[in-house]
Amino acid sequence: MFKVETFGRVVRITMQRAPVNALNNEFIAGLDRVLDDVEGRKDVTVVHLRSSQRVFCAGADLAQVETRFALDDGANIMVRDIREFHRLFDRIEHLPCVTLAEIGGTAFGGGFELALACDLRVAADEAKLGLPEARLGLIPGAGGTQRLTRLCGPGTAGRIILACDIVDGAEACRLGMVQWSVPAARLVAEAEALAERIGSLSAASLLVSKRCIARVAPLSRTGYEGELQGTHGLMALEDTRSRVKAFFAQRR
């Protein structure tokens, strides 16, 4: 599910869960095991996260989501799942090294929330990014409402979350959703060069800088709880259930 390689002070993690790196409990457990190793290494300055698939990550595993909606206690189980997303993404954000997401394809929903948990993001101009959960009567509840607003402000967060706008990598860079955007043909080389350049810097100064940056706008626990409560309540609405049912019927 994950390929882990070391290049000097850079650890490259390649997500390999075909076909779209869908996020489910197994994926989270696997990435946790990878991070267990990374956190224990003092020689790591950069974690470079990328995908071997045509997409970066398409978000939550739809089979798992559909199962939750079919259960009487599905809303509570969904909230439990999202708590695990919160925990994993917080863990990535607080790693004692710089994290870089290389976005070569689609990053929707939980997939973009995964990228938002990284310190830095470089995307292909042609990549597609967004948080389209409102189309299903849901919200980007794995930290998306919090991290995107902190990163880009309420105006851009409103455009992406409330209007469900899907933007390409070039527009995402203009909006501040990613820090760099390059043509797809150059993405791999640019991301690797960026990771190598950061990896050559002082690990101690990067860690102190990262911690100081985080103090400017820490994430709100109440914001997370709002996401969880909102998801729980939305799953009980007939409108949401109808939208989700129609979505899965269309996919079939």
Score class of each variant (00 low, 15 high):
G226F: 11
E84D: 15
R87K: 15
I161F: 01
V244D: 01
S181N: 09
D73A: 11
M15E: 12
F112W: 03
L194H: 03
A191P: 03
A142P: 05
G155C: 11
V4S: 07
T240M: 06
L116W: 04
A124G: 05
V47P: 03
A236W: 09
V44C: 07
L129E: 03
L206N: 01
R221N: 12
G111P: 01
T240W: 08
V178D: 03
A189C: 05
R121I: 04
G176P: 05
Y224V: 15
G141W: 00
E113D: 10
R33W: 08
L49D: 02
F7K: 14
V216C: 07
F7C: 12
K3N: 12
D239V: 15
R215Q: 11
Y224T: 15
L228D: 07
L207C: 04
A189M: 07
L31N: 05
I166T: 13
G105W: 10
T67G: 14
G109M: 09
E196D: 02
D36I: 00
G176K: 02
R150V: 10
L35R: 02
F85S: 12
G176Q: 07
G40Y: 08
L206M: 05
A60N: 13
K42Q: 13
E225Y: 04
L151V: 12
I161H: 01
S202M: 00
P132F: 04
V20Q: 12
G130N: 06
C152Q: 00
K42H: 10
T222D: 14
G155A: 13
G153C: 03
L151I: 14
F56G: 02
A115N: 04
F27D: 07
G230E: 05
T99F: 04
L151G: 08
P154M: 11
Q250A: 14
L95S: 08
M1I: 08
G153M: 05
A236H: 14
L100D: 01
A204N: 06
A204D: 12
D72Y: 09
C152S: 03
F85A: 13
I28E: 05
G233E: 15
A127H: 06
K128Y: 10
V38F: 00
R17G: 08
I166L: 15
C97K: 00
G153F: 04
V216K: 11
L151D: 09
